[in-house]
Amino acid sequence: MIYDPIDIALLLGKIALVFFVILTLAAYLVFAERKVLAWIQDRKGPNRVGPFGLLQPLADLIKLLTKEDFRPIGADKWLFYLAPAMAAIPAIMIFAIVPFGAPLTLFGHTVQLQVSDLNVGLLLFMALSSVAVYGVALGGWASNSKYALLGSIRGLAQLISYELSMGLSLVPVVMLARSFRLSDIVNAQAGCWFIVYQPLAFMIFLISIAAECKRIPFDLPEAEGELVAGFHTEYSGMRFGLFFVGEYINIIVLGGLATTFFLGGWHGPFLPPAVWFSAKVLAFAFLFIWVRGTLPRLRYDQLMHFGWKILTPLALVNILVTGWWLVLRG
């Protein structure tokens, strides 16, 4: 491979842009969530810091940074410090493979609006989302607290179960696009979005990613009513902040992937591709917030029952039907 300095500069620029946009978006997603939840509950939400409360994320950040960094007695020091990073970093790394716009031409170079267009992009996503499980597992284990341990055990079981149905729901997408490369998958939807061919796979994927981000109604690992704050009970300050922001990065990233796999990625009429992509991701984020404002938490046995006895068989059947249909179509 030849490393053109401009290529490298563009690549670093893309990474910086992605980092900046994702982190800012995650911070404002927290704010948006509080606002939308407030509206749903006939309240006003945060409106004291800055105009319309827009500086609230900044205030939250300052608060988290200046809080005492607390470690419980008997906690496993290194694992305890490692866990928040394990939760946040894989989440943001997944976005490296997401194409967020049509290729551009800059300074005579064709620039993919995607940090890295891997030929096994989808598999990398599956691998990284599995690594994210360790953040939950280690955080709960290293805290030396019964609430945290219970939360992380629940988290492990839940994430592993729903990862299965998530992976299975993506097989038809690969079958349709005939590629693991995400740019290929997006291009395959130039005519018709996969959601039209695969509404069932889309629903399974949607439910599974809700479970993967530990969002209501699948927030059993943190279940504040029963486990205080679940696996991150013992965390404070910016370490808690990393868990927290990791969750919102997950929402953006998984929303981006759902867009890529089922809603045609950046494809769309009239508007610029990046705008289409952003609009679709934000629509997903809103959906998550809306669901949080509406649905109660599942019971643990309901969660397991739903994952193993409904979602996974459905995804398998869906693969069979898709394969049969592809064979019939030729």
Binding site: V36, I40, D42, R43, G293, T294
Partner: peptide
């Protein structure tokens, strides 16, 4: 039932908040 719930929360988004500043 799910859709009804979602519809109710959707409607509340546009209600006037009861908060007194």
């Amino acid at each position: 039932a799910l859709v009804t719930g979602m519809w109710i929360t959707w409607k509340h988004i546009f209600r006037r908040p009861v908060t007194i500043q």
